Simulated assay, not measured.
Amino acid sequence: MGGELFTQMAAEQMFSEEVARFYIAELVQHLHSLGIVYRHVLLTDFVLSKQALGADGKANTICGTAEYMAPEILMEMHYDKSVDWWTLGILMFEMLTGDTPFRANNKKKTLDAIQNKKLNVPYYVTNDGKDLLNRLLRKNPNGRLGSGNDGTKRVKSHRWFRKIN
């Protein structure tokens, strides 16, 4: 395809699950191999990344695009790499639907929706896709798929990826 992912998304509006699965699998494979808490999906824009975490493996700065921020960032809590799994879920949702899940008509309402609104996945997303989205977009980072030491392995083993080598 070539070009930036968001250029492709703007042109296509939304991707098939097969195309989204390819991109998401590439991101899962690559992102955490870098040891970076990314907080935003444009992988070339490392101004929005944070490599130097504290001794506890956590950070507490706020940056990035509001629609992609995990609830723990908005609440100014210390966070870890689980915020990347939230952002991956937001990106996956956007790829499959053409919009982010907690978007509202102003920034304050968007931030409130991220913290309080229940995820609503459209009917046309497969059951495996819905399950992965619901697990990635859990508001509690400790219950979010991808959290913990074996998080990447658990994400990769989700049944939505079964068609990917």
Rank of each mutant, 00 (worst) to 15 (best):
K50G: 11
A10D: 15
G146L: 11
A20K: 10
H40C: 05
L96Q: 02
Q8Y: 15
V47D: 10
T152I: 13
T152Q: 10
A70L: 05
N127G: 09
V121L: 05
Y23M: 03
C63F: 04
A104Q: 07
L5W: 07
D150V: 04
L34C: 10
L136C: 01
L132E: 00
M75L: 13
V83F: 01
N116W: 04
G64H: 07
L91G: 07
E17N: 05
A11T: 06
L96D: 03
L132P: 02
L111V: 12
G151S: 03
M69K: 13
Y23P: 07
L31Q: 02
P122S: 04
C63N: 07
R103C: 14
K156V: 01
Q115M: 13
N120L: 06
R138T: 13
E76Y: 12
G129E: 00
I36C: 10
R162M: 11
K58T: 15
K139L: 09
M95F: 11
L53C: 07
L53I: 05
K81S: 11
M69P: 15
E4L: 08
D112M: 06
A104F: 03
T97D: 06
L43M: 09
K109S: 13
V83N: 02
S33R: 14
V125G: 02
R159F: 04
Q51V: 09
L96V: 03
E18Y: 15
P122D: 04
M77T: 06
Q115L: 07
V125R: 10
Q115T: 04
D45R: 15
D99A: 15
G148W: 00
K81R: 12
W160Y: 12
W160I: 05
N116K: 12
Q29F: 12
L74D: 12
G3M: 07
N120Y: 01
V155C: 03
A20T: 08
Y23S: 01
P141L: 11
E72C: 07
L133H: 00
E12W: 12
R159H: 08
S82M: 04
G54E: 14
Y123I: 05
R159N: 05
K108F: 14
R154V: 00
R138S: 07
G146R: 02
N127F: 01
N105Q: 13
K163T: 09
Y123D: 10
E94V: 04
M1E: 10
V121R: 01
T97E: 11
A59I: 06
G148F: 02
L96N: 06
S157E: 12
L133T: 00
D99S: 15
G2R: 01
A52Y: 06
F102I: 03
K163Y: 06
Q29A: 15
V41R: 11
A25L: 11
P122F: 02
D150L: 08
G146T: 02
K109H: 12
V83R: 02
M69H: 10
D56N: 13
L43H: 09
R135K: 14
R162V: 09
E94K: 03
A59K: 03
L43W: 15
Y79L: 13
F46D: 06
P101T: 08
D84Y: 08
G64L: 05
N165V: 08
L5I: 11
N149D: 12
T152C: 09
L119H: 01
E76T: 05
E4F: 15
A10W: 11
Y79P: 15
F93H: 08
M14N: 13
E12I: 00
T87K: 11
Q8D: 14
G143S: 06
L42E: 09
Q13T: 07
A20H: 14
R21T: 05
